[in-house]
Design a protein around this nucleic acid. Structure first.
Lengths: 222, 222
DNA sequence: TTCCTTATCGGGGCTTCCCTGATGCAATAA
DNA sequence: TTATTGCATCAGGGAAGCCCCGATAAGGAA
């Protein structure tokens, strides 16, 4: 618990040059040690259980499997390490998903090294590590409406709004939604406006992106 | 010209940890030296002309501008360095474009370090450096016969169309795309229309969905 | 040269976005 | 009982976007 304790780190990333850089970065830190690394999700799943590890750092693009999948697999069995995602993927899209699957932090790969090290220390203290921007966004979303909805902000939507949201996610136009529901275009527009308010989406593009990714997530084993 | 000669290398990449790894990699090579690096395209365009450089290594995702644009800019004026692209972007989509814009090699970031060093040596010898797979594909195409555009329909898109597609995938409005590219809204609309034709997308919703999933590399657009 | 692709734009009609409203209904709180 | 709140429905109007019809100019290929 004291800051003197050495943090054991395992890296899963399919970019050899990045692994070299990460290794060098940890070498400059006296109380961090890289205890192993692997290039693929499969290797990681074999290797990690054989070691004593505090933090697993994973990329999301792994060649053989998605990093998200790896996180799910790692957390399927009881373990005593934490997970930090270090990826070039848009945090707006993936950070929340990664945390839901059991990650403890999410940083983009262009994050300055000092901040990466700081995030590792945070996670070692059992805290959650996110960029200021992203953590603010999530807090706003979760605290914004009180303890009303525990998990999904979609619970804020009324039945009718959810119907509209789903059709938007299927790529339907405003007109098409109106015809499908036998109501006026103007009414659909109002529903869309309310959805944007409730989900804190600033324009129609964000609404569509949100709806698309929601519709696409209906099948995975959550 | 002889293999004894030292090769001066400049790196443009927006991932600090990757730059560290690359720097370490070159340190292990006696006849290669890293003479400078920058994080953005703008900095690179300022810095590079002030140095004596043999090879510029560039990433395609640069934050402030596209790496393709940087290559075009670098070659706008006469120079005496070669360019190696080192990117995580799909080589099927980008390798040929990069070469046409004046790059001398294209490797994916998950390439083993030895092959990266070998590519640098090849380019220093004025050869072209590509993965075996990619060079075979290009040869086949040039020789007239091959599975031409069977794999990724994105290859059908022109450079400009791909730029627009990417911005759409980032949730940018038509107006915003136009401002970003310094062209008329009408021109952006034309590009969008051509993209829809080439990718067989029937309306703007489908275009957005396709672009979203592509930029996030969830699953390659079928 | 002729043809094709690419990149750039315009007109005009229609649709959608976004804002400010409104109405009626039902459930709940004061 | 009255007031409030949330829900679902709709209108008007200006701005923006979509989608069809074009066009022009540059560059490469046949």
């Amino acid at each position: 618990m004291a800051s003197e304790e050495t943090i054991s780190i395992y890296l899963v990333d399919d970019h050899p040059v990045f692994r070299m850089g990460f290794s060098g970065l940890l070498h400059s830190e006296p109380n961090m040690v890289l205890v192993g690394e692997s290039e693929t999700g499969r290797d990681a799943l074999k290797d990690i259980p054989t070691k004593k590890i505090d933090i697993v750092v994973v990329d999301l693009a792994l060649g053989d499997m998605s990093g998200l999948e790896l996180i799910r697999e790692l957390n399927r069995e009881k373990n005593d390490f934490s997970i930090l995602v270090l990826s070039m993927h848009d945090e707006d899209v993936f950070a929340e998903r990664a945390l839901k699957l059991g990650a403890d932090g999410y940083l983009m790969k262009n994050t300055p090294p000092v901040e990466i090290l700081e995030a590792i220390r945070q996670i070692a203290r059992q805290e959650v590590a996110l960029s200021k921007r992203q953590s603010d966004l999530m807090l706003k979303r979760i605290l914004g409406r009180g303890a009303d909805q525990g998990d999904s902000p979609l619970k804020l939507l009324s039945d009718r709004e959810l119907e509209v949201f789903e059709l938007v996610g299927q790529g339907k136009s405003t007109r098409h939604v109106a015809e499908k529901l036998f109501i006026s275009i103007k009414t659909v527009e109002t529903h869309q406006a309310h959805i944007k308010q409730k989900l804190r989406l600033s324009n129609h593009s964000e609404l569509m992106r949100s709806a698309f990714s929601w519709v696409n997530e209906l099948q995975p084993t959550n």
